[in-house]
Structures are given as structure tokens and as C-alpha cells.
Design a protein around this nucleic acid. Sequence first.
DNA 1: TTGTAGGCGTTATCAG
DNA 2: CTGATAACGCCTACAA
Lengths: 340, 340
Amino acid sequence: MRRKITLKHIARELEVSISTVSKALKNSNEISRDTKDKIQAFAKLYNYKPNNIAISLKNKRTKNIGVVIPDIVHHFFTTVFRGIEKYANKRGYNVIVCVSDESFDREVINMEMLANGSIDGFIMALAGETQLKKDYNHLKEVTEQGIPLVLFDRVTDEIRCDKVVLNDAEIAFEATMSLINSGRQRIALITTDNFFSVSNSREVGYRKALKKGNIEFNEQLVLRLPYDEDIDGIEPFLKSNKIDGLLSVNEIFAIHCMSVAQRLGYTIPNDISVIGFTDGILSKYSTPKLTTIAQHGDKMGEMAAKLLIEKIENDFDEENEVFTTEIIKATLVKRESTIN
Amino acid sequence: MRRKITLKHIARELEVSISTVSKALKNSNEISRDTKDKIQAFAKLYNYKPNNIAISLKNKRTKNIGVVIPDIVHHFFTTVFRGIEKYANKRGYNVIVCVSDESFDREVINMEMLANGSIDGFIMALAGETQLKKDYNHLKEVTEQGIPLVLFDRVTDEIRCDKVVLNDAEIAFEATMSLINSGRQRIALITTDNFFSVSNSREVGYRKALKKGNIEFNEQLVLRLPYDEDIDGIEPFLKSNKIDGLLSVNEIFAIHCMSVAQRLGYTIPNDISVIGFTDGILSKYSTPKLTTIAQHGDKMGEMAAKLLIEKIENDFDEENEVFTTEIIKATLVKRESTIN
DNA sequence: TTGTAGGCGTTATCAG
DNA sequence: CTGATAACGCCTACAA
């Protein structure tokens, strides 16, 4: 087992000093051609690679990014992560992922763990519990220590940092309008009852569209479900309400609505038109294929990583730092669950 | 901006030596109660946390695990990753993920990047390209340097290391048998044409079951598709072959087969029974719900992490190291796409 | 052209 | 009980 070789080994072997080796390997012209050749050859032969940890300690730069997300088995977060990873890698950064599992405590623990030197900056989406508690002290801690932070999707106004969000309200408005424009009048909204920032925004857009379409908002037509996979409320809801259009804040609710509705004898899209959020595989492979709002997670992730790395690499002038909020434009992907 | 505080700061402030501070914070009983109290109080006040990087350098242990997978937007890998992350976290490890994107080069680059001190061990599934090329030098490099490695799912015999695999052949056999036992005779296999180790094993199981059921293997009934999302071959295949049962090596092919078959007028499961691999959301929300082979990615991930951390923490006796291959037992989840 | 010394933050050993 | 010193691996200003 060939253990990793260090500058010291090379120096000893070649009977020169460590700093000579260091300089030679950087091709410094303080060092003679001969010595450099000798050292470089030796280093190559033994496959010398500088130790990342030592460099990190020296430079106070780890070239690691910490990503803290509520869930990884979730199409949207996964695509965002892919965007982050891809971009970060291109810039020579590695990505450490921690999953908060929607738990406030795990979010805090994970961040503390990483904040002690393991990473140069954070990218995160808030855990559900955190948004409920509205306790953002762990984020404040981190930013006060000068660790750059980028929030995406599930963000909060209470923290000053770069953010990347979807134009949730706008696209929900647009989607609802498209239902209205195709003649729909009794449009349901299926959403989550936790106070996720995004669900709120989507509801705002939905309501605004109704208003514009001169349709009175009807709380009866809003179904607030506790969480992603908790879909039992859907069947009674569809049975007890006459609806002809439906906007869902995620894919799963939408798909399930479609299958329940079909079972109840409705045809889609003629009797009920359906639009969901998150353009994942469910939407592409359902029957009928679901019209959906593509959130472009890759793009969000890439943007988040870009903002973060810029902050990391540009030593901004402390006090009057500027924070930006980038808005990623969602797009409506029309498939078979809506008319034309 | 309160910068991170170090032992040195505390020492200076309290006019003691650095080593006294270090010991006091570790509650060493070399240090007097008084001094400890004073130092600990100060440390708490200024929220002192030891710097991970410095500790890593000292201990030659990073408490980081490197995970290299072909794809993250893929249900199976995602669940494995979740298993790894969960277990690793419990043991105090962080997880650095690199996505190879099925590319050999990216796999190599990523591993080299991480192997220079950033991680204590690797968990990985081979990229498609790597399995095609059969070039495993980068893995050899790593193991020769004494970095523990655990392969999962997409493994190779050419590398001596711990492995975690599914009982692919067995479960494919079992699934095929269940089709045969419900009276199916013309059973198709939808698989990938790359030489993924897992696809091969599954085909082996499929063939074995046919044999056992006295059904002659018919190459006509095997559809080999180039890659996951490339599903155009399915429609002609179903049109030109009379089949009554179908085993697919993934969810997407299976779901698509169902919808094409339904469009062609077949009813499922009566005319055609369908079983897929990967128990993801597609299976749960399709109509009819897909009978599927649950790979228990979480469990695989957990097992992989467990094996790895054991290797990392037990300084085994070099030469006569023992490597184990753990087999995770898949289970057949019966839903609506098969009879009874 | 080469080498020495000091430092990044921590810990362990040993001396006082 | 406290502190000085060296070490982990690397870099760099400065001395020779």
C-alpha cells in the first residue's frame, strides 16, 4: 500500500528543502531548471498531489459548498441539486449535502457542523418546520460570521442574503388564467397547509387570476392538505365539490386528482382540466399527460451556485454589501390534461 | 461581522497558554476547576467551535465520505443516497456527492479531486461508460492508497473491496416465475443494451425462470433499449409481438409499456401483466398501479455506509484484509398490473 | 538559486 | 496545574 506522498518525503528523498520542492512544483523561476526537472520528475513518478486539507487550512478556503435541503427524494430538489453540483464542479468546488428532512433541529445541527470550517458557503432551502417556527437564528449566526449564504425556493425576508426564487405568484396567475380562458369557472386549488412561502405565493396568484376573471374566490374550492404524500383528502373533496378546473401546488396531488376524477367518471381535460406544479416524471408518464409548471430546478441551482461562488471569491467591502434576488421564470408546459 | 474565534484568541484574551485553553475545553483534569470555568465560560460566550479543517489535518481524518454516482435525478440512486446520508450523519460523517453523469472521465476526475485528503472513503456505483470500458485503474489507485471503497449496485469483480448488491438474478427469476405461475406464456423482457452488470443479472434470472417453466427463450421477446428515457422502441415492439406478460428492468419502460399497451386496446393485467424494477413514485401513481420490484435503496445505502465507516474506523491489518459482499434482498410489491 | 522560519488551528508530549 | 514545543502538510517572506 503506497501511502500518499508529501513535500517532505520528496525533500528528504532528493536532499533539498521542503520549500525548494514546493517552489519547484509550482514552476517558480527562483529554482534552477535542473532542480525543477529533477523534482518534477520525481513528483510525477510518485504521483504527488498536494493535500487539500493542508491547503484549506492555509488558505482558509475549502472549495466546498454546503447544500442543505429538506429532502433529496423529491424531483424538484434533486434537479436543483444537479444544477448546483454541475456548476460548482465546473468552478472546482465540491458539494457537501445535508438533508434536513423538514426538521428545524436537523437543519441547525447540519449547518453548525458545516460552518466550522468545512465549507466556504451555503446554499439552502428552508425546512418546513423552520418556516413554521420562523426561527432563523442559525442563518443569522452563519451570515454574521461572514459565511456567504444563498437561499432558494423556500426563502425568508428576515435574512439578508442572495436569493433565488421562482415567479410563483406570476406563474400561478398565468396558469389559472389559462384555465379561465378555456372556459373554466369552478377552479379548485390543491395546496399544502404548512406555511411554505411558495404555497402562499401560488395561492396569491390563483386568487388574483380569479379576481381578474370576475370569479369569486370560494374557500370551499381550496383543499389544504398537510403534506406531500397525504392524499386521502382528495377523494371526498372531489366528490363533494363540482369543479371543472384544478391547480395543484405539486405533481403528486395533481396526478392523484386525475386518477380519482377519472374513477369518478370525469373525463380529463373535458370535464376537468388539471395543471400541476413541478415538471417531473410523473407528469410526463401519466395518462393523460399532465400539463404542468416547469420550475427549472437546474437553472435555479446553477444560479444559486453562481451567486454563491461570486460572493465567496469576491471579497466584497463588508458593510455595504449588495444582495440580489434572482427570479427564475417558470414555464407552463401544456400537455393533455388541459384544453388546447 | 464576528469572525470565528480560535484557541489563540481565547488564550490571548485570558492570558493563558493555548495548550491550557485546549485542555480546559476538553475538561482535562490537568487543569484547575477555576481556570476551566473561566475558559469554558469565555468560550461559550464567544461561541467557540473547533475548526474542522485543523482537526482533519491533525488527525488525518476528515469525517467526510465521498459518494460518486452516475445520476442523482433517478429514484433508485436518490434513495440509496438518502440511506447513506442518514446513516453517515448519525455517525458524525458528512457526505460529499459527485455525479459522474455516466461518464468515465468525470468519474475519474471526481475521484482524484476527492482522494487528495478531502474524504476518508468512497461509496460509489460505476458509471455506464466505466462498465463498458472496463477500465478500473482509478479504483485501483484509490484502494492502493489505502482509501476504503464500497461499491454498490453497479459493481465489478475486478476490484477487491466491499460491495453491496441486490439479488438481481434471484428477484428477476421470482418475478418471472410469478408471471408464469399466473398462466403467462409469452413474457417479454425490456432491458437496456449497455452492459450494466445489473441488467445482465436480471436477464439471467428471467431466462432461468423461463427454463424452469419450460418456456423456450425467444430473443424476439427481448427489447434492448439504449437508455433510460429512450422509449420510442416500445410501441413497434408491442405492435409486432404478441405478449401476455412483461418484465422491465426499470419503471419508466414499464409505465410506458402499460400506457402504449392500453392505447393499443389491451387491458392490464388481464391481457398483459406487467412487472417493473424500482419501486418509485411512478409505480405508485400509475393507472393501474404497477407491480414492482422494490430495491430498497435506503437499505443499500445504509449498508454501504455502515461497511465503509467500519473500514474507516477499524485499522485492519493491511495484507489479509477481508472484503464482504452484502446482498440486499429485493421484494416484489404486488399492485394492480399483475393478477392476484 | 536555495533554505530558514513562521504560520494556518489543533492536539499531544513532556518539562517545569 | 500550566506552558513550551513539535507536529499534521503546505505556503511564502525573507535571509543567505
